[in-house]
Design a protein around this nucleic acid. Structure first.
Length: 766
DNA sequence: TAATCGATCTTTTTT
DNA sequence: AGATCGATTA
């Protein structure tokens, strides 16, 4: 309206501005890595509210992770505080929100809890005890996949997932069992809302009436069911805008459908496309590596990132003997950067400070983190591990959650099975089965009522245990349902959130509140069970329970509070442990890095069969390649790649070969160090003999602990594991420190750079 | 019914 | 190498 362009718009480049101002038609924003897509989305939200008069209430923004949702909310509010009124959720939390309100239309009680993969397997085991657990896992996976694709058991398309009659049968039985429990699984959070919306046009109408603007982040990760949900909630008057990058689609394995993005313009007819290709994150040499690899993929929408930053440092590829040396090499690299920083500060040089938190170690599989943890512990390098904590998958945590779930929903068979005999109450499989059979006599299949009814017919031992269990449940329920205390406690707890969530809210603080969620767990004896049960890990387990229960203090001790707490646990599993300001290196899987950025990135384990992982087909390989692309484009200033010659796999030494992606990468943009494997650089040469070392600068360390000040001089005698004795013939100063040219007794001349410490290179005489 | 010791399998990636 | 599972034993 006004003549003046607001500050937040001035900060945008022309394409970004165009995307923010766009209206009327559906919009697909193809946003390359580091192109400022979050800025575009948040600015667009703010702009809609500020300038277009859109009510925050009618804006829905969907992301895939809670972290992204929180960040987006924060940044939108920074520009326009009213953005706090928008609905900003993950797909699953949106589905859950919808189901709690409208689930009744599909026979789902609003107090449902959400089963995770493990719970699915437990339930399947109850349906088909004759099937082995590994097979049950596969079936659970297939059911989840079917739901991702919006395929019920009797749909014709189900054959694509698994065509056997047995599968369809068990899928059907699983759905029935789930309904009996009154719960849902992850897939249902998307699938059920679609079904309800289709069967109830009035509900759909109301929803479409409310949400006039829908935005979807990371659209390339949407699966078919999520796509269907989008179609259901967007009506003729809905403005829909999706943001994604086909090159960053890395969740095909869990049902993400790249075609959603490839065919968006076709399906949401007449959509506009805006490409954001200016990359503000990485230096051009890093982007060069990324794009030289990703261009081997077919079926891309086509988009080449343009580096807006300068050249920077050359990415470095290091070949190492094994994973232990790999870890050591990374630790050296990190320590060197820290020491260099300290030195330059001491010398009064105003160099940017190097911090541990500038560094991230990326790996393909969680198992690889072990070697780094060991080495970093030994070297006292502070680190944090992102994801993989599997906190909520731990036995003691699941036990506590199961108890709370059963309190909320006494139909919950999975939770019942888990808690009935923990602590030991002398109730075995036979008794459990009798109870579960008896529940069908109860109204609503209430398992707790069945327990009470069966009490007289149980053996003395089982009956005593059952009484104990029922008492604990009953007492807990009395605490929860005492109306006046719960309401007061609820409001107090909510208001004092910050006070209780402080780090020092130790167990004592929790114990002080006699009627809080933690108290329920103690009452049931779950913490005591774990303390006594496991000599070695018992205390750790109790500590984990405390960690969980500390979080629960934020929720009021009401039924609703419990449900909220459980939902939070199920949908936001990224627990904030060690989220203090401590300066730490990040250890992280490549999948987990999406959306993140680091100044210095080390991508490790770039070996065939590990990264890329054994691929079954071309599509798998392309997804691995995208994953590589995602990893590389996390780096802002420095990129390091490592590849081991040998690796322990299942405790067995395995010979490794360099990753296909290393062969595809533009070698002119990479400094290659370490012992280069035969043939790596001569892939194009017909002469297999003329390879490697001649072209490569081999890196080794300057040993500081030798006699003099550690400086290299011409004439120094050296020893090298691979090359034997030699003499320093030339020293060349470079940006990265001195490059040392050595002539070995074999006659070969090799250059060394003092970048990576390695015990294979020693200076023996000055 | 619980605890202990081998045998067997594991390494994708996650809302 | 380490975890998990299951059969065997007390």
């Amino acid at each position: 309206m006004g003549q003046e362009i607001p500050q937040y718009m001035q900060e945008l480049n022309p394409e970004q501005r165009q995307a923010v101002l766009h209206s009327l038609k559906p919009l697909l924003i193809l946003a390359g890595a580091g192109s400022g897509k979050t800025r575009v989305i948040t600015t667009k939200i703010a702009h809609l509210i500020k300038e277009e008069g859109v009510s925050p209430r009618s804006i829905l923004a969907v992301t895939f992770t809670n972290k992204a949702a929180k960040e987006m909310a924060q940044r939108a509010c920074d520009i326009e505080p009213l953005a706090a009124g928008c609905m900003l959720r993950t797909f699953h939390s949106f589905g859950s929100w919808f189901l709690r309100r409208n689930g009744g239309l599909a026979g789902i009680d609003s107090s449902f809890i959400i089963y995770d993969d493990e719970d699915m397997v437990t339930l399947l085991g109850a349906i088909a005890p004759e099937i082995k657990k590994t097979d049950l896992k596969l079936i659970a996976h297939n059911i989840a996949r079917a739901k991702d694709c919006f395929l019920p058991p009797d749909s014709p398309g189900i054959d694509k997932i698994n065509h056997t009659k047995m599968f369809k049968n068990i899928y059907k039985k699983y759905e029935e069992a789930l309904a009996r429990c009154g719960n849902v699984d992850f897939g249902d959070l998307i699938k059920k809302p679609v079904e309800i919306l289709r069967a109830n046009p009035n509900v759909a109408e109301r929803l479409r009436d409310r949400f006039r603007v829908i935005m979807v982040d990371e659209y390339q990760d949407a699966n078919i069911a999520q796509f269907e949900l989008l179609k259901e909630i967007s009506g003729d008057n809905t403005y829909i805008c999706v943001v994604g990058d086909d090159d960053q689609s890395i969740y095909r394995f869990r049902g993400a459908e790249v075609r959603n993005i490839l065919e968006f313009p076709k399906i949401f007819g007449d959509a506009d496309i805006i490409r954001l290709v200016r990359n503000y994150r990485s230096t051009s040499q890093i982007l060069q590596v990324a794009s030289s690899v990703i261009k081997h993929n077919s079926g891309r929408l086509g988009k080449e990132l343009v580096a807006e930053r300068g050249e920077g440092y050359k990415p470095q590829l290091t070949f190492l003997p094994d994973q232990d040396q790999e870890a050591r090499s990374c630790a050296d690299l990190i320590n060197r950067s820290i020491n260099r920083s300290i030195n330059s500060i001491n010398n009064g040089i105003n160099k940017p400070e190097a911090k541990y938190s500038d560094w991230a170690i990326l790996y393909r599989t969680n198992a690889q983190s072990l070697a780094f943890e060991n080495e970093f512990l030994r070297r006292k390098i502070p680190y944090r591990i992102v994801g993989s904590l599997k906190f909520y998958e731990r036995e003691e945590i699941k036990d506590a959650i199961a108890l709370l779930s059963f309190l909320v929903n006494p139909k919950d068979e999975v939770s019942f099975r888990r808690v009935i005999n923990k602590p030991a109450r002398g109730i075995g499989a036979a008794t459990v089965q009798r109870i579960l059979d008896a529940r069908y006599m109860e109204e609503d299949w209430n398992i707790e009522s069945a327990c009470k009814k069966m009490l007289p017919s149980l053996s003395a031992k089982a009956a005593a245990g059952m009484k104990d269990f029922l008492c604990a449940i009953q007492e807990s329920r009395e605490i929860i349902e005492e109306p006046d205390t719960s309401i007061i406690k609820g409001s107090i707890t909510k208001k004092n959130t910050s006070e209780y969530s402080k780090k020092d809210s130790s167990l004592k603080a929790v114990e002080g509140l006699s009627s809080c969620i933690a108290h329920l767990i103690q009452k049931a004896g779950i913490d005591e069970y774990h303390r006594a049960h496991d000599d070695i890990n018992g205390e750790q387990r109790v500590a984990n329970l405390q960690e969980l229960l500390n979080g629960s203090v934020l929720y009021p001790l009401t039924n609703a509070g419990l449900i909220e707490f459980l939902e939070h646990i199920e949908l936001d599993r990224a627990i904030e442990m060690n989220e203090d300001a401590t300066d730490r290196v990040t250890l992280i899987t490549v999948h987990n890095t999406k959306g993140a950025e680091f100044k210095r990135v080390i991508m490790t384990g770039l070996e065939q069969g590990l990264f890329p992982r054994n691929e079954k087909n071309d599509e798998d390989l392309e997804e691995e390649r995208r994953l590589f692309y995602v990893g590389v484009t996390r780096a802002m200033d420095e990129l390091y790649l490592t590849c081991c010659r040998e690796r322990r796999v299942f405790g067995q030494r395995m010979n490794q070969t360099p990753s296909l992606f290393l062969r595809e990468a533009d070698k002119t943009q990479i400094r290659i160090t370490g012992n280069v494997p035969f043939g790596f650089l001569s892939a194009r040469s017909t002469d297999a003999g003329s390879w490697a070392h001649g072209n490569a600068i081999v890196t080794a360390a300057l040993k500081k602990n030798t006699s003099s000040d550690g400086r290299w001089q011409q004439g120094d005698t050296v020893f090298h594991d691979d090359n034997g004795y030699g003499e320093v013939i030339k020293i060349i100063e470079s940006d990265d420190g001195p490059v040392i040219k050595v002539k070995f007794q074999t006659g070969r001349e090799v250059q060394f750079l003092s970048m990576v410490q390695s015990s294979s290179f020693m200076k023996i005489k000055n």
